[in-house]
Amino acid sequence: MLELIVDNRYTLTAVILFVVGLGNMMLHPNLIKKVVAFNIMDAATFLLLASRGFIEGRTAAILTDGGANVALYVNPIPAGLVLTGIVVSVSVSAFSLALIQRIYGSYGTIDMNELLEIMKKKGE
């Protein structure tokens, strides 16, 4: 059991981070904190992906010998995927923060419960 935990420490950390983000996203009524939680979930995914590419006893994929010895370097593909993910995460958070700013501008609040009450009143 302990061995399993030590072997999968990065994956376990990713799981914990992911669930912290998910719980915060559902429980916090504040919209900005929801965006923060979303970013925590992103970080968890990146940690999982990056840790999958590691190979014991090898170094980062910056070639020092022109690629003659393939067995010296770790897997570069997850790093590329993480790069893609970071860009998309930045774009999505910027977009959602802009939306939140507009919501604050027209409703005067970014609390989920207060927003619901306002919309209910508007519906009636």
Binding site: L63, G66, G67, P76
Partner: peptide, 13 residues
Amino acid sequence: VGSAHDETGAENV
């Protein structure tokens, strides 16, 4: 890893 340097000219794979 093996052919990145020859084909793309980049040392950063």
